[in-house]
Design a protein around this nucleic acid. Structure first.
Length: 226
DNA sequence: GCCAACGTTGGC
DNA sequence: GCCAACGTTGGC
């Protein structure tokens, strides 16, 4: 299942901060990030980050093909995200504690790969960024939602979601099969994907990526599919 | 549609 | 708190 799909949410629902929406700082175009590779070794000099961004990159799974759950279609592809107002949607439906904790750790402007799961050709379709940090997932209280959780109380919500905004499509679709090929090779060679959660924590719908994993995957865009 | 992996539940 | 039964995820 699903995972997380998202849904409407459109412009961050109710809260769409007026002004905020305005200055859409198109900042860090992921392309720039890709370009930098490891060229700018942030001065690891130290205390710079003071323990701040511990984990800055993410991978979020969603199903791009229609599938009914409790009579509701849980499909949500990256194209669906692009079609939302402001190309933004809330990432609802996460019902796994580890995945939820990752959602709660996400910070504004951090980037995530949008992964297509449970479909013909699973893989990474594009990049999104966090535009609203964790807040209660309203679907846990909706009896008709596939994600309804009767054990969760309004005064102490169990599940959280974030809002994500489309950044860009990958220059080419990076398939699971291709990632797996690298993962297997890296297990032997000690390469960047050797511990990738997609393979080591296979059922987790929201996962962290190390910078090494993130930039290695971005570098694949420039190469021929292996 | 099959089924392996793995998270959750609940009896004890 | 152990662990078997059960349910879900998600590739194939």
């Amino acid at each position: 299942m699903p995972k997380p799909r998202k849904r409407l949410g459109g412009a961050a629902g109710p809260d769409n901060k007026g002004p905020a929406g305005k200055h859409t700082k198109t900042k860090n175009p992921a392309g720039a990030l890709a370009a930098m590779g490891n060229s700018s070794p942030e001065k690891t000099s130290a205390s710079k980050n003071c323990g701040k961004n511990l984990s800055s990159y993410w991978l979020m799974k969603s199903e791009p093909e229609s599938r009914l759950e409790k009579g509701v279609d849980v499909k949500f592809s990256i194209e669906d995200l692009k079609a939302e107002p402001k190309q933004t949607a809330c990432w609802d439906g996460v019902r796994n504690y580890q995945a939820r904790n990752f959602l709660r750790a996400m910070k504004l402007e951090q980037e995530a790969f949008f992964y297509h799961s449970n479909c013909k050709e699973p893989g990474i379709a594009g990049l999104v960024k966090i535009v609203k940090e964790a807040y209660p997932d309203h679907t846990q209280f909706e009896k008709n939602s596939p994600y309804y959780d009767p054990s969760s109380k309004e005064d102490n919500p169990k599940w959280s979601m974030v809002d994500v905004q489309f950044v860009r499509m990958m220059k080419r679709y990076i398939t699971l099969a291709e990632l797996k090929t690298h993962y297997q090779a890296h297990k032997t060679t000690g390469g960047p994907l050797k511990d990738m959660a997609l393979f080591t924590r296979q059922r987790l719908s929201v996962q962290t990526l190390t910078p090494e994993e993130f930039y290695f995957i971005l570098s694949l865009e420039e190469k021929e599919p292996s």
